[in-house]
Write a protein that binds this DNA or RNA. Structure first.
Lengths: 153, 153
DNA sequence: ATGTCTGCAAAGCTTTTGCACTGAT
DNA sequence: ATCAGTGCAAAAGCTTTGCAGACAT
């Protein structure tokens, strides 16, 4: 609880700094959205975030969600993913080390993993192909353990 | 020229086999689409393919393009990508070894590259995390050489 | 007081679906 | 002669935009 509160305080401060430095207004809606995102784990899309906030006291519009997500992406408090579905998915990214994803094509579950060898590949690309990498996404599509067992029966 | 013709003959045969084995009709539209895709290099989206075919003698609908692309994906003659834009991009995949992509976030150029180390990562995931991988996508986003120079000025 | 940000609704884009017709089998 | 596949248009999703009003500065 207090750990979560600390995290929330930290990201709120980062967001505030970002808004000030970019001449953006510090509106209650923006903080409410940041708060909602950092209060839950896992991946989400705009629609589910909209529903979740509507079901609570919040009064937000989809437009504001899209607008605010853009700001959060810009200050790296949120990451955006396209896992092959038509709609984008997001996740909070502060204090969450960069990781990659296994996507189960049967049940749509998303599993995170880390592998240091990716760094080697990226170093090679930057040095030998002279491409300045700002971010990466390694997605492995296939069957998770559960679905492998299910499909056997 | 004759090399391209050989490739076209080969993929046509593969597609024909696929259609027969799956009780799908061998319609001229489907072959026209396959032909169009294999006559050009690089990545494309449905809309540009539609425009390109409309500008020629072809009479195709978007619905048929989406439908046929689905078949071509299923028989692995085409690969689908989501590079972070809202619309999907595709590329022919026969005789095109599996590769990954550098995506320039400034000019949207897509550059292909291969790195054998990815195989090591995938082996590890399959064996130690018991996840059955069917395909992967490693996308590195950043600035290509041209845009690095442009942005310096 | 000013002008940005908001909610709402409407429009935009990509993709999917419904329907009557065409044509591969 | 069937009925799957097609073109066309309309619908369905996700995302963006226009506008009048609200509110952070």
């Amino acid at each position: 609880m207090s750990k979560n509160q600390n995290l929330l305080d930290e990201v709120t401060e980062i967001f505030t700094d970002y808004l000030m430095n970019n001449n953006q207004r510090k509106t209650p809606e923006r903080y409410a959205i940041l708060n909602e995102i950092y209060s839950h784990d896992g991946h989400f899309d705009i629609e589910s975030l909209y529903i979740k906030m509507k079901n609570q006291k919040y009064r937000v519009s989809r437009a504001t969600l899209y607008n605010t997500i853009e700001l959060l992406l810009d200050c790296h408090l949120v990451r955006k993913h396209q896992f092959g579905k038509s709609h984008a998915q997001f996740e909070k990214s502060y204090y969450n080390k960069q990781h990659d994803h296994l996507i189960c094509t049967s049940c749509d579950k998303v599993i995170e993993f880390c592998d240091p060898r990716i760094q080697g590949i990226m170093n090679f690309i930057e040095n030998d192909m002279n491409f300045k990498i700002s971010r990466h996404a390694l997605n492995l599509y296939g069957l998770c353990v559960d679905c492998q067992t299910k499909l056997k029966n």
